[in-house]
């Protein structure tokens, strides 16, 4: 079976304040349904790698392939469209739009995709919110929710278009241990029950240890995977 994500020989430099090689010949294959955590010390390049994998960072050498599509060299607009369809994001902070309700926030990526009618999208958004146990807050403004609930809404939003990969940058980094546990359980369930591929950058060792695969980085290289 083809890997859902294939990074070939990824190299990246930072130029400011001086030229510095942040990623060195990274090779990474991720299978469908895998729950992968990306760990390493601060400054090892794990976040940088994730942003390259996310298609948002295009300033690298090497090749990136997701869902059998070569993404290296595509235009920003094409990549934005690709992200909309194939990648969901969860960050350390929820980044929900404060002027919109929970339901609207979840619906936005699907409205952007424009493949379903508004009614179908609303139905699907409620389904995702239900899956994450925050369906009863659907009509509230996002700032009326607790931090853990907000992060769950953000996950629902990341899942709305049934992405091939869910990417997380410290998805539990801003949560207490109770809420971290909840988010981890959700991720666990998504991978086992729904065969959702997840790549999460974390420095939470407890979190990393319980994932399917731990990729450890040091000085811009993968040392164990």
């Amino acid at each position: 079976m083809n890997p859902v994500l294939h990074a070939k020989n990824i190299t990246k430099y930072f130029y400011d304040p001086e030229k510095f090689q942040v990623l060195k010949n990274i090779e990474l294959k991720v299978e469908r349904g895998q729950f992968l955590s990306l760990v390493g010390k601060s400054g090892c390049g794990k976040s940088t790698l994730m942003y390259v994998l996310s298609t948002m960072d295009t300033d690298y050498e090497g090749e990136l392939q997701i869902a059998n599509e070569l993404l290296t060299g595509k235009s920003q607009n094409a990549l934005a469209k690709f992200r909309n369809r194939h990648i969901g994001f969860v960050f350390q902070f929820h980044y929900l739009l404060p002027e919109f309700t929970v339901l609207q926030n979840v619906m936005i990526p699907a409205l952007k995709l424009g493949e379903l009618t508004t009614a179908e999208i609303e139905h699907r958004a409620m389904e995702k919110l239900g899956l994450l146990g925050v369906a009863e807050h659907a009509r509230k403004k996002t700032n009326k929710l607790s931090g853990g609930q907000q992060q769950r809404v953000a996950i629902a939003r990341a899942l709305i278009n049934n992405p091939d990969i869910l990417m997380g940058d410290e998805p539990t980094g801003n949560l207490d241990s109770h809420n971290s546990g909840i988010v981890f359980e959700i991720f666990r369930e998504l991978t086992t029950v729904h065969k959702q591929t997840i790549i999460a950058v974390t420095h939470d060792e407890e979190f990393a240890r319980r994932t399917d695969r731990v990729v450890e980085m040091s000085d811009g290289q993968i040392i164990t995977s």
């Binding site: 996310s54 934005a80 469209k81 909309n84 990526p109």
Partner: peptide
């Protein structure tokens, strides 16, 4: 976040 979710510059 809109751009991460797939909004192009034009949007």
């Amino acid at each position: 976040i809109l751009k991460a979710m797939g909004f192009a510059g034009m949007d």
